[in-house]
Design a protein around this nucleic acid. Sequence first.
DNA 1: GGCTAAGCGAGACGGTACGTCGAGTCTTTGT
DNA 2: ACAAAGACTCGACGTACCGTCTCGCTTAGCC
Lengths: 201, 201, 201, 201
Amino acid sequence: MSQPVGRPRDGRVDGAIAAAARELLAEQGYARLTVDAVAARAGVGKAAIYRRHATKEQMIFAAVMHDLDLATPPDAGSLAADLAAVVRDIVTSLATPPPGVVPGLLADVHADAAMAATFVGTFVKAERDCVMEVLERAVDRGELSRLPDPAVVHALLLGPIFAWLFLLSEERERLPAFADALAHGLAYMLHGGFGDGLSMG
Amino acid sequence: MSQPVGRPRDGRVDGAIAAAARELLAEQGYARLTVDAVAARAGVGKAAIYRRHATKEQMIFAAVMHDLDLATPPDAGSLAADLAAVVRDIVTSLATPPPGVVPGLLADVHADAAMAATFVGTFVKAERDCVMEVLERAVDRGELSRLPDPAVVHALLLGPIFAWLFLLSEERERLPAFADALAHGLAYMLHGGFGDGLSMG
Amino acid sequence: MSQPVGRPRDGRVDGAIAAAARELLAEQGYARLTVDAVAARAGVGKAAIYRRHATKEQMIFAAVMHDLDLATPPDAGSLAADLAAVVRDIVTSLATPPPGVVPGLLADVHADAAMAATFVGTFVKAERDCVMEVLERAVDRGELSRLPDPAVVHALLLGPIFAWLFLLSEERERLPAFADALAHGLAYMLHGGFGDGLSMG
Amino acid sequence: MSQPVGRPRDGRVDGAIAAAARELLAEQGYARLTVDAVAARAGVGKAAIYRRHATKEQMIFAAVMHDLDLATPPDAGSLAADLAAVVRDIVTSLATPPPGVVPGLLADVHADAAMAATFVGTFVKAERDCVMEVLERAVDRGELSRLPDPAVVHALLLGPIFAWLFLLSEERERLPAFADALAHGLAYMLHGGFGDGLSMG
DNA sequence: GGCTAAGCGAGACGGTACGTCGAGTCTTTGT
DNA sequence: ACAAAGACTCGACGTACCGTCTCGCTTAGCC
C-alpha cells in the first residue's frame, strides 16, 4: 500500500461540498446548479471538488445519495406488511430530494455509462436485495408457493411511485394512501399466483 | 379574430426543425444536441428556431412529442385485453425514442413550469383519457362494479414500464412479456376489487 | 428609354426614410442605428428602404448628405475673405450632423470601394471646385502670382477643422475663432508663396 | 496594496491577442474582423479576451494603440526642422496601420465615451506634449516671441495629414513632400506671428 | 372595367457575429 | 501534497442585425 505523502485531505471539505450542493439544489433547482456556485457556497476551490469527483454529475450523485437508508426492513409478519415497509422506504428515497433532483439525476445517469453502472450496482441492487429478502420471507412463511421474479416485483413497486411523483405529477398528499394500496394490491396479486415463473417472466 | 399580416410562417420550417432534432438525437444523444447543429441540419437559421420555441428544451420537447399516437385502442372485448393494448401503446411511446431522450426530456420538463404544464396537459391527459375509456368499458361490460381511480390505474400501468426501462435498466427483450403480465396482473387486481373507492383512492 | 410600368414609387417614402434616419442618428448615435428602427420610425417596410439603397451605409450616406449646400460662395473681395467663407461652409458641413455621424460615415466610406468613389466624386469634388474657384479668383485679382496646388490648399482648409472636431475633441465654442484664424493664416501663407508649384507639391 | 490572489494573468495572452488582432486587421480589414477569429488565431478562448476588454472595439483599440512611438524628437536646431520631425511621426502613426483601420477606430472612439476619454488622454495628449515641447524650444531659441496656442498648432499639423490620407484620398506618394511643405509653411506662419495670442487663440 | 406590373407595410427567412456562461484544467501563493 | 483563488481553453447559448423573400393589398397605366 502507498504511504500517503504531503498534506492529507481535509475531511471537512467533503461534507461542505455535499452540504453546499444539497442547499443549492433546494434553492435553485437541478438545472441551475453550477460547480462554481457549489465551490463558493462551500468556501472551497473548484479544484477541491474535481479532486474528489470526476464530473459535476458525479458530485451531485454523491451529494444526493450520501445517506440513503436502504437496509431491509425487519420482518413485519406478512408479505403485505413487508411490502408496505419497502414501499415506504422507496417513497422516502424519491420524495425527500428537492423537486427536480430525481429526474435530473436520472437523465445524467443515462448520459454516462459509468454512472449508469454505479447507479444500478448501488441503488438498484440495494433495493433489489430488499425485495428479494421480503419475497423469500414470504416463501419461507408459506405465503407464496414459488419465488416470483424479483425484477418484476421491483418494477411493480418502484415504478408506480415514480410515476405518481414524476410522470403524472399527482398530489403528494395522496401518495401515502396510494403507496399503501399499492403494497396491498401487489400482495394480493402475488398471492393469486401472478409473478410465479412463466406467468410473468 | 385578427387576420394575419406580414409573411406567414413557412410550415416546412417547423417540420425541418423537428426532423433535424430527431435525427441528431438519434445520432449523437440528448446531451450532445446543439441548437446550431439542428439549425444547420435543418437548413434553417437559428432565429427561425427561436421564433418558434423559447428555449432549446422546448424545441426538443416539441420535436419528440409532435406525433405521438395516443388514440384509445378499440374495444378488445375484455378489461385484460384492453389494458394490454394500452400498455403496448405506452411501451411504444417510451421505447421508441433514442436512448437517453426520455430521461432527458423528463428532467427538462421538471426544470420548467411551463413545460410541466404542457406535458401534463398533453401527454398525461391523453393517456389518462385512454385509461378512463378502458375502465368505463369494463364497468359497462359488468366486469367491474365500480369505476376505479384512473390516476391510480394510470400510475400502475405507466410506472412499471418506465421503471423497467429507465430505472432498473432491465433487458428490453423481456419487456413485451413483462408488459403483458402487467396488464393481466392489473386486470386481476381490479377484478378483485382493488382500486374501488376507499381501498385505493 | 424604358417607359415606367406598374405603380410608381411614393415620393413621400424617400423623405420619411431620410428623416427617420436623421432622427435616430441624433437620438441614438451612429453605431446603434438599425435598419429595422429606421423602417419602423418611418412607418415603412424594410423592402422600401432596400429598394432605394443597396446597403444600410448608403442609406445613411444619402440621408446625411441629402441637402449639403456646397455652392461656391460669392466673391468677397480678397483671398482671405473668400477662404473664410469656404471654411465656414466646411465648418457647417462637419459640425451640423449629430455627434459621431461624420466619423461613422468616414469609416463606412473606407470600408466600401463604391462608396469611396461616390464620396470623392461628390463631396470632395464639390469642395475642391470651391477651393479652385477661390484660388483662381485670387490669381485673377493679382493676389497670387501662380495657382497653388488645390489639393494642398484643400487639405490645409479641411484637415484642421476635422482635426479640431473629431481628432482633438477641442471645444466647439472656440471653433469659429479657430476657423477664422485658419483662413487668415492660410491666406498669409499663400501670399508668401507657399503652395506655388514645386515648393509644395 | 492588495496582494494578488489566485492565478495571475498570463502576459503572453495579452500579446497574442494584440498580435492576432493586428494580423487579421491587415489580412481582412476592419469590418471583417471577428472576435472569434482573433481568439482562434491567438490560440486563446474568447473569455480571455473579454476578461481584458469590455468590447470588441476596445480590444482593437488596445491592439492598434499598444506600441505607438510618440517620444518627442530631438532638437533639430530650428522650428521648421522640429515641426518636420513631428509631422513625420504623425505620418508614420497614420499611414502605418492597414487601410481602413484608422477611420474605423476613429468611428468607434466617437461611439463610446470611455474610449473617447482614453483616446484623448493617451494619443492626443502625447502628441500635444510633442507639439508643446517643440514650440517652447522655438521660444527659448528666440524664433518666436510668444508661445502659440498648442491646440491650434496641433490641429494645423495633424489635420492636413489626416485629410490627405482619409478625407481626400490623395496619392500616398506625394504625402512626404506634402508633409514637408506643411511643416515649412506652418513654421513660416508662426514666424509671421499667426498663432500668437489674440490672432489665433 | 379588367389586366399587368410594380409599389406598399409587415414580418419571416438564412446567415453571421456578438457577449455571456458553464465545465473541467492549470497555475499561482500559502500552509 | 493539499488548500483557495482565479485565469485558462473550449464550446454552446440566446440575441441582434443585415439583406432577402413572401404574404395580401394598393396604385398606376394600357387594353
